[in-house]
Design a protein around this nucleic acid. Structure first.
Lengths: 346, 346
DNA sequence: ATGAAAGCGCTAACAA
DNA sequence: TTGTTAGCGCTTTCAT
């Protein structure tokens, strides 16, 4: 921090004033005469004075910035969410600090710790696939850190949460597959521990049950690392394809799993949807130009980010401790494209 | 910063020691007895003591973190670059703070300012498409802030730079198109002011000239905002398609322009490559599963990020001012897929 | 081997 | 209206 090295003290010395006078003048205090204010303000502007926010934060205990933890920015869903967060945060004079957990519990803990020590005023987090224990977050919350969960939430911590209607999205997609004529519908999803997994699985099961289709456990595959390493996903896909009655359709439960599954099917020369139909949760802007175009469950990512940030800032700005928490559920939207086309048997 | 509220002072009080003793013990100073060190360290660990980095930064004048400015994380190229940066930074004990300029000059300036005031020790930046004037960066550099440019560099500032062989990549792609039988090759690129634009344009022109094909200015379209708003791109595409001799191939110069062009062509029912072939700079992992699969010029994004960070940290850690700067140029790789397939005339 | 004290840049209670 | 002073949490001389 020796860039723009001029400090409040320099101004004071130069103008023959005390530091406190300068400080107050800078903050437009009513105690300071217009004349002095003008003098200080002009000098400050001319010399490109910038308050040192480290010092300010140290003093004031807050930093006007909020921390974000997502699993990976290399994911259209999360980058869209982040854009929504930036938008809301900027409009209220806050900055954001973005970090990635890469689905790792250790990295999540490390990032949160880094953010905390960067004096963030609040935390927006989608917990990592690996994370089973949220003790690190609960402690922080108890100590007064405002936290808002989005996407992957924890039921063990009571705070504002923003998710989508995962059950509904999954249900709708499965019904679509069934009504398109598919019978043996598999589901590739993320880690068992994730809230998102549970909800999307429920939607899938509910649709099957409702249409009188037996739920086959062999058709449900979990990826402990959210499909981050291709091996686990490939194994899941292989097991499905090599089973005695291979599925004729697959519902994939996350952006990465969806696109990776598509890539794997291509690599294995499995035709979509002739050999197996594919419907997946995904926010990729390329859904239309994929081969085939991808039927996808789309989430209002920008709105999720915006809403989560609004709620976080409302906690931060609240005079009294917030104890009533809200659980916002936004709708998903099913875009039907060619990857789930009904095909006549050959 | 009252989360994990325990401070060095608390430890001192609890252990009946002075703060300075505790501070030294924590930093494993030779002045402190093993016994005391052990006492302090254990107490600190048990009580989950974390030094307050704001205070440390304020005191020491550095923060062990580096700032990153990219145009948009919603772009596989940049998110891969960032992963490379994180990887190198973490391995050297640094944290990164990621910000997006969204191709806007104002946002770039604001982000840089925010980063500076967050006491970053160095800056990694790919300048925004809109940015023509780099005065804000030059001033910072003169004041001693280590800066490393990557991707979009400025010739007006002398520092380490990491780019790819843009000319070569573009040349190779164009030659590939020509040798595949395409004659009327258009080039959709970014803002005129960008270094990347110039280099990629040169490669394109060079290939045409070398193969004795006339360079047609009508075939070269600029997008002032890097294709960020679809309108400017759509106009470019329309102008090309509606010209008296429409191109039979297009070379697109950036990730966003490439994917957006593909989307537009689909929307207009223009067949690729039958009606027009497409080759583009892109790092999307979906290139293989696009319709058609996309011939792309791929950049070693992770390595770019890693290398840039290495260089930045070498400046930061250098005892004496660095005045000799390096210009690293990494190779691109052309992946030939179906979007540039040679097609027999109908 | 340990402690007292100054100070990083800033804010704010209190004095003048 | 302006100035003095005491910290925020930490590091670092300089005593002891």
């Amino acid at each position: 921090m020796n860039f723009d090295a001029i400090t409040i003290r320099d101004i004071a010395r130069e103008l023959q004033l005390s530091v406190s006078t300068v400080s107050k003048a800078l903050r437009d205090s009513y105690e300071i005469s217009e004349k002095t204010k003008k003098l200080v303000l002009e000098y400050a502007k001319e010399n490109n004075y910038r308050p040192n926010p480290m010092a300010q934060s140290l003093k004031k205990g807050h930093s006007k910035s909020i921390g974000i933890v997502v699993s990976s920015i290399d994911n259209q869903f999360f980058s869209q969410v982040i854009n929504g967060m930036e938008s809301e945060a900027y409009s209220q004079g806050y900055n954001v600090i973005i970090t990635q957990s890469h689905e790792s519990y250790d990295l999540e803990v490390q990032n949160v710790s880094h953010l905390i020590h960067r004096a963030i005023d609040g935390l927006l987090i989608s917990i990592a696939t690996e994370t089973a224990d949220v003790e690190h977050l609960r402690r922080l919350q108890q100590q007064g850190l405002p936290i808002v969960f989005f996407d992957r939430v924890s039921s063990e911590i009571d705070t504002h949460k923003v998710i989508v209607d995962n059950l509904g999205g999954s249900y709708q997609a499965t019904i679509h597959l069934i009504d398109s004529g598919y019978k043996n519908i598999a589901h590739i999803t993320s880690s068992v521990t994730s809230s998102v997994t549970t909800q999307r699985l429920s939607g899938y099961v509910q649709a099957l049950v409702e249409r009188g289709i037996e739920v086959n456990d062999q058709y449900i595959k979990y990826c402990a690392h959210g499909g981050l390493n291709l091996e686990e996903l490939e194994q899941a896909v292989d097991e499905l394809l090599q089973s005695s009655t291979p599925p004729d359709a697959i519902l994939t439960a996350s952006d990465r799993i969806t696109t990776s599954t598509m890539t794997l099917l291509h690599k294995k020369n499995i035709r979509i949807p002739q050999d197996v139909a594919l419907v997946g949760f995904s926010n990729t802007v390329l859904a239309d130009v994929l081969n085939p175009s991808l039927t996808s469950v789309h989430q209002p990512a920008f709105e999720i980010g915006k809403k989560a940030t609004e709620m976080l800032l409302s906690i931060i700005n609240s005079k009294r401790p917030v104890t009533e928490f809200e659980n916002v559920i936004l709708p998903t939207e099913l875009f039907i494209r060619n990857s789930s086309l009904k095909v006549a048997p050959e």
